[in-house]
Simulated assay, not measured.
Amino acid sequence: MLMGEVRAQEMQWFACRVKRKQVGAIRTVTVGGEFVAYRDRAGRVRQRRVDGTGDRVFLPEHLLRRAGFEVFLPVKKVLRRKNRFSPGKHLVSQPLLVDWLFVGWPIGESRWHELMAMDVVTGVMGTGGRPVEIPPARVMRLMRKWGGGHLSPECYHYLKTGCEFAAGDTVRVVTGPLEGARVRVIDVSGPTVKAALDILGGEVVAEIRSDVLEAVSSEGVK
């Protein structure tokens, strides 16, 4: 069964510990982007990525998804300086849990051999020598709060069922002092939405009532 055909509520989830290969948090890498050819000092043809292109991803999450697993890495948004020369700050994603993420696959399948054969995880949360399955409803609640716009398409579409917005959406304020402003959803919590908006070149996080927001179509997002 293809992963894209599996609805999130038909998954079984397990908390897995990432194999640490460096000091610090889970490593990030840049994938994709545009490349240009050049010659090094020895005259050999090389390629380098064009600055500003490609997507920044968390390496363990990227490797597991590429292997066909469904993965949820809880992330939080923190304000960091853009660089050491500028006082301006911007929001960056940071793993919420040190060395832990959730891995899932369709109910009825057993993929432990494939998972443990990868040089990515070192173990799984369990008791009495047996893995403990994390209730899907609990995983969905965590996704709503800590998805941070990094969810896979399958889980993203599931979370939008019964909820107009999800983390990572761009929405428009339709009334009030911020009328017309476009903001990026960070978290949905009941009747309010935590969103980031650009003010004077920096990002400010605000809590806005969801009933004064409307979705912006993908064609309208620049």
Rank of each mutant, 00 (worst) to 15 (best):
V6R: 08
E61M: 10
L151C: 06
H113C: 08
C155F: 03
N83W: 12
R84N: 13
E164V: 09
A25V: 11
L159V: 06
V18M: 03
V139K: 04
G104T: 06
D51A: 15
A15M: 14
R27S: 01
L97T: 05
W13V: 06
E10K: 10
R182Y: 07
C163R: 13
E179Q: 11
L178D: 10
G220P: 00
G104S: 15
V45C: 04
T53R: 01
M125L: 15
E61N: 10
T192Q: 03
R17L: 12
V221N: 02
G33S: 04
G33T: 00
E70H: 13
G43C: 03
L178I: 04
A25K: 13
Q22L: 04
Q94A: 06
A181E: 14
R56A: 00
H113M: 12
L63Y: 02
H150T: 14
R49T: 00
L97H: 13
D119H: 10
R44Y: 12
I199P: 00
L115F: 12
R20Q: 11
V171Q: 03
V121G: 05
K82G: 03
I186G: 05
H62R: 10
C155V: 09
V174S: 09
K21W: 12
L213R: 02
R144T: 06
V124A: 12
E34A: 05
G126M: 05
A117D: 15
K194M: 11
M118F: 05
V18Q: 00
L64K: 04
V121Y: 03
D51G: 09
I107R: 15
V98Q: 10
G24R: 07
V78S: 08
E219N: 09
P177T: 06
Y38T: 06
P153C: 07
A8E: 07
L101K: 03
D169C: 08
L2E: 14
R65K: 10
A167M: 05
V92H: 01
F72A: 05
P60Q: 03
F102I: 09
V23H: 07
T127E: 14
S217H: 13
S93H: 04
R182Q: 13
G123F: 05
V212H: 02
G32H: 01
S152D: 12
L2S: 13
C16N: 06
W112H: 10
R20M: 07
S210P: 00
M3I: 12
R81F: 14
K145T: 10
D99T: 02
V171M: 09
P191F: 03
V50D: 01
S218V: 10
L96Y: 09
I107V: 15
L213G: 01
V18Y: 00
R41T: 10
V204A: 07
A137D: 15
K160S: 08
E214R: 14
T192E: 07
K82H: 03
H157Y: 14
G129H: 09
G104V: 02
G202Y: 02
W100K: 07
